[in-house]
């Protein structure tokens, strides 16, 4: 094997190694907590009292908050994302589609702290005013902003899925007297179901893992949320807000790593579902 090839092979394995290391370190740093406090109530309870005696660590409320915010983002984002992808793949001339695609690519880079800032200054007051809430810093506001942030992922992957549908299907549909919309809606979109599903899962993974935006506008309340319009603290915000204050190797510190491990496992599972669709398709 020439040395260049050996070098790039090494680089390839490095990617594998880094992914594995992330998992290994999370497990290692979680272990002291899991050994001492590991129980089901860690997932189901909603009391998080890191400095009481004895301390209590339960992440149920944070998990539910993550779920609510992700759900809001997906429910709002997916219809827009799929319709936008249909426009790009099927309705607009290629020259126009390229412009929109470029806009998505560029705005995909807007930092999440900037979205958080805007959410704080504009979205939260608007939500509070429109819905007559005591505070606009709610799970709903965070989900709303996240729905905008996941759109580039949703649109580009859904568009790819739509474009991958064989043209023969559309042709058969037209030959049966379908118009363009009927062909899109009854044949092309259903045929792209798998790819669009993968796009939704990847977007979901992104929403679950998003940190700064939710840290800044979800409201930060520790208790179990009872409505999507409650202030809440998703799991990413919990870690980001406390990790700097937790004494190293304290139980709180290890509990936060355990929360990180759970987060890693959840996003890993969600992404693996998406990846199995994508990688599986390429293999064919």
């Amino acid at each position: 094997m020439p040395y260049q090839q050996r070098l790039v092979t090494l680089a390839g394995y490095a990617v594998l190694l880094i992914t594995a290391l992330i998992f290994v370190f999370l497990v290692q740093q979680s272990w002291p907590f899991v050994r001492e406090h590991g129980s089901l109530v860690f997932f189901t309870g909603d009391r998080w009292l890191p400095v009481s005696l004895p301390p209590v660590f339960q992440i149920g409320g944070f998990l539910v908050s993550s779920g609510i915010i992700t759900g809001v983002a997906i429910i709002i984002g997916v219809p827009f994302g799929v319709l936008a992808a249909i426009s790009l793949a099927e309705l607009l001339p290629p020259g126009v589609s390229v412009i929109f695609r470029s806009i998505f690519e560029v705005t995909a880079g807007i930092p999440s702290v900037v979205f958080g800032f805007l959410g704080l200054k504009i979205v939260a007051p608007a939500v509070a005013g429109l819905l007559n809430l005591p505070t606009g810093l709610t799970g709903f506001s965070a989900g709303l902003v996240l729905s905008i942030m996941i759109l580039p992922t949703l649109v580009s992957l859904s568009e790819e899925a739509l474009r991958a549908v064989p043209r023969e299907y559309a042709e058969a549909s037209y030959a049966l007297g379908a118009n363009r919309w009927q062909t899109i809606w009854r044949v092309i979109v259903p045929s792209a179901r798998g790819g669009i599903g993968a796009a939704v899962f990847l977007a979901m993974g992104r929403a679950i893992g998003e940190t700064m935006t939710v840290l800044m506008i979800a409201g930060g309340r520790l208790a179990m949320p009872t409505s999507i319009f409650d202030p809440m603290r998703p799991i990413t915000a919990l870690i980001a807000s406390e990790v700097n204050n937790a004494a190293r190797n304290s139980m709180q510190y290890h509990a936060l790593f355990t929360a990180g491990l759970i987060l890693f496992i959840i996003t890993f599972a969600v992404n693996a579902i998406a990846a199995s669709v994508i990688v599986g398709k390429k293999a064919r």
Binding site: P166, E168, Y169, E171, A172, S173, A175, L176, V187, P190, S191
Partner: peptide, 11 residues
Amino acid sequence: GMVFQKPNPFP
């Protein structure tokens, strides 16, 4: 109606 060269049933 039309039938094509390559069978193209919908999925």
